[in-house]
């Protein structure tokens, strides 16, 4: 099987006035891969993610996502990607089922498809007893899993996860990564940003951003050898210096 590249970024740049948030970054992500986009807060992760998801335009360079140019084919691109933010954005005043139905609706799923998906999600996450409960009454850990399931409701080629594990306890985080593996096994490419360095070991490949540039890129093993370190934390500290 040839390696299909689902994200290609070439000298992608974004400036805000005189400040360069993302500075000529180039990388690619292969199909079915879990790609960790690491960096400290303010390193430019979010800006880069926003450009790749088509909600922020780039100031230079180019990129394709799922085969679509992020500048020219923004609308077709959007149908093929999923997105989950660190706020686990679900509507608090809607029930679990209504949330799923709404997101199914805006991604153009038919009623039948949405109903099937709803059943599938409820069963997989074991949510039968709370399917008609308002989201505001559901604990955070569950919300996170639901938000992820909703983000891939339309079976996108790529799902972007922006700091998906912030504010959750370690056990829930572990369970959440199991969901990510499951999605990756089903052929969905996962692009995940995080500032938890230990999560790097869950990823197939990692890119490390500092001050708008990609400082290092490779598998965990490669990075550890290259920087002669025992953990990603060490790599990070060496790079940040």
């Amino acid at each position: 099987m040839t390696e299909e590249k689902v994200i290609v970024a070439n000298n992608l740049t974004r400036t805000f006035g005189k400040f360069t948030a993302v500075d000529h970054i180039s990388f690619d992500v292969r199909r079915g891969e879990i790609f960790g986009f690491l960096g400290a807060n303010g390193a430019g992760k979010t800006t880069a993610t926003k450009m790749l998801t088509g909600i922020l335009s780039s100031s230079g360079g180019y990129a394709t996502v799922a085969g679509f140019d992020i500048k020219k084919h923004r609308n077709r691109l959007k149908k093929n990607i999923g997105y989950m933010s660190q706020k686990f954005s679900l509507y608090e005043d809607l029930t679990l089922k209504e949330n799923i139905r709404f997101y199914g609706g805006i991604y153009g799923l038919s009623k039948k498809e949405t109903a099937a998906k709803t059943g599938e999600i409820v069963e997989r996450l074991d949510l039968k007893q709370i399917e008609n409960t308002l989201i505001s009454e559901i604990p955070l850990g569950w919300k996170q899993k639901i938000a992820f399931s909703v983000a891939i409701i339309h079976s996108p080629k790529i799902v972007f996860l922006d700091e998906p594990t912030s504010g959750v306890d370690p056990i829930t985080r572990r369970q959440f990564w199991n969901l990510i593996y499951e999605a990756a096994e089903n052929g969905i490419t996962v692009f995940v940003t995080t500032h938890y360095m230990d999560e790097a070991e869950y990823c197939d490949r990692i890119s490390m951003m500092t001050e708008g540039k990609i400082a290092a890129l490779g598998s965990l093993h490669e990075l550890l050898t290259k920087y002669n370190s025992k953990s990603m934390d060490e790599v990070f500290i060496k790079l940040a210096r």
């Binding site: 998801t53 088509g54 909600i55 609308n75 959007k78 149908k79 990607i81 997105y83 989950m84 933010s85 660190q86 706020k87 954005s89 679900l90 509507y91 608090e92 997101y103 805006i106 991604y107 153009g108 972007f160």
Partner: peptide
């Protein structure tokens, strides 16, 4: 405020 606007903007909704 809730962050759902971001999700809506990433979605195919114009």
């Amino acid at each position: 405020e809730l962050g759902t606007m971001e999700i809506l903007l990433v979605s195919p909704l114009r």
